[in-house]
């Protein structure tokens, strides 16, 4: 099994300026002293887009929060953009899961985008004209400038996601951490979001996202990280997303779904057959497709 990072061949225009964008070494992290992540090690090259997949409770959000410095490692270390310890705030952008955001809060799209620049101005300082312009161009980039005066509560799911993204990238971070950016988006919106992420990467950003969507990882990501408390596998999607790995990653969850009834799982499989695991070469056994898509269905209904 490939748990080691393999150097990306395609992306040549992005050079490693000073080491990898993100390096995680033997990381143990969790809450109240109880580890959720155990002995996780991997490395993300600059300009890459990495998808973290795994069932609920597998530690995807914990992984992202640890990189952000919101969760302190119990053991091991995380180095962001070459710096040890707390990452430099200005260099990292983050979008939380949409359900964790208070959408009834009386702020507008423009207000939220501007919040992405608060880290630039320290305590007691007001935001400046440049900050407002930066927020505005971030909104333009996510195609939300026209809705700048909307209250966030009046936005659709895809628009909410794009506002959070605008906030995360308003200060032009080098590393973007996105917690479940695809959740709740329809296929069109997902593709728009992924296109947008590609644009950002073309400008030199590195993207790490967590998702339940295997097709997104297999089609659009440079690397896949299969996480279930331990890192089951890390590497190119085409090499990593095997029956064995997916079984190890989603294993117990699959059993439960099978108990629920074959019909439900099968139906879902046919529904998403077009996008399924088509990107995995030489490994298209029906069992895996079914498993993978069932896992997607099971997760998203939770």
């Amino acid at each position: 099994m490939n748990t080691k990072n393999t150097k990306s061949q395609e992306e040549t225009e992005i050079k490693a300026e000073a080491g990898p964008a993100l390096a995680v070494r033997n990381l143990w992290a969790g809450y109240d002293g109880k580890p959720v992540l155990e002995a996780v090690s991997f490395q993300v090259d600059r300009g890459d887009m990495v998808g973290i997949i795994g069932p609920n409770g597998s530690g995807k959000s914990t992984m992202i929060k640890t990189v952000l410095g919101l969760v302190k490692p119990l053991r091991g270390e995380v180095s962001v953009l070459g710096s040890e310890g707390d990452p430099e705030r200005g260099l990292v952008g983050y979008t939380p899961q949409t359900e964790l955001v208070d959408w009834d809060f009386p702020v507008t799209v423009a207000d939220v985008a501007l919040m992405g620049l608060y880290s630039r101005r320290g305590l007691f300082r007001r935001t400046t004209k440049e900050d407002r312009e930066a927020a505005e161009s971030a909104l333009e980039l996510v195609n939300m400038a026209g809705l700048r005066d909307r209250l966030i509560g009046e936005l659709s799911g895809g628009q909410r996601r794009r506002v959070l993204l605008a906030r995360a990238m308003a200060h032009e971070p080098k590393l973007l951490l996105l917690d479940e950016p695809m959740a709740g988006l329809d296929a069109t919106a997902q593709h728009q979001l992924l296109d947008l992420l590609d644009e950002l990467r073309a400008k030199g950003a590195t993207v790490v996202l967590s998702t339940h969507d295997l097709s997104c990882v297999s089609q659009r990501c440079d690397k896949a990280a299969c996480l279930n408390r331990r890192l089951i596998a890390f590497g190119k999607p085409s090499e990593v997303l095997t029956e064995q790995v997916l079984g190890d990653t989603f294993g117990t969850h699959l059993l439960m779904v099978h108990l629920d009834g074959q019909a439900y799982a099968y139906q879902h499989h046919t529904h998403t057959a077009g996008t399924g695991t088509a990107g995995i070469p030489g490994d298209g056994s029906p069992a895996i497709k079914s498993s993978a898509n069932t896992a997607t269905a099971a997760e998203s209904t939770e």
Binding site: G69, R89, Y94, V101, F105, V107, M115, G116, Y118, R126
Partner: peptide, 16 residues
């Protein structure tokens, strides 16, 4: 601005 941000989204504001 800090109170506003934290009241709105504590996780993100900690990340900032």
């Amino acid at each position: 601005k800090e109170l506003l941000f934290t009241a709105y989204d504590a996780t993100m504001s900690a990340a900032s």
